[in-house]
Amino acid sequence: MKCIVCMTHVPDTASIIKIGADGKHIDETGIKWIVSPYDEYALEEALKLADEGKADEVTVVTYGPQRAEAGLRECLARGAHKAVHIVGGEKTLGDSLAIAKVLAAALKDREYDVILVGVKGVGTDNSQVGQMLAELLDLPHVSNVVKIDWNDGAVAVEREVEGGHEVVESPLPAVLTAQKGLNEPRYAALKGIMAAKRKPVEKIELSALGLDEDTLAGADATYNVRSLELPPEKAAGTIIQGEDDPQAAAAELVKLLHEEAKAF
């Protein structure tokens, strides 16, 4: 089998977020960039298939600026065989359809049995690219996947929904979006890190795909950020000291919740 893993390179989830000078993006100074956590589950699933001898090729693809190469190297270090870097994406950040168009253009002539993506790219938090990519490539998709049984030319997967899960069967190729619980991502071992340095990263310019970022972000844009704002300062809450008399503190809390907040 040949597996494609889509990876997006995002600010570390522990980053302190400041608004940039244009008022529409974050200030990137001091930001540490990581492989989006859900993409780690997507990659791990492909690497497990390779370990089991079911997959002979794991290719990681990203559409991102130069720094995203570090994310690809991280994936190579964990064991991915190939990496593809479509360079760009700063102007289309958050525009899921534009991103899906770029990925679809890059993948349409490649050979693959499955495309694994994360359920959500953290930061922009859209949860859209996988489903849109499936539609553009005319593939079935299943999102929010927490378990996959790999069969011949098909998968049986569990998809997490409110109050339970759905059991879904799909032929391959398909797009599957990985949710936490699917697996435990591995770390890169030193040997892998050394080996990754020698693995090539294929660079693709948007023009080679017949696309250009100015059109994607201009006439064809489907997502317009008017502004990015910090959450309003929250007024200080009512904090009750309950170390000495927890009983009294609990009574006061329940009273406040009932009478003042009318929470129950």
Partner: peptide, 17 residues
């Protein structure tokens, strides 16, 4: 839309589409 783990909010529209 809450973005960046709700550390920021994006005010957005569909760019006329």
């Amino acid at each position: 839309r809450p973005v960046y783990s709700a550390k920021a909010f994006a005010i957005v529209d569909t760019a006329g589409k």
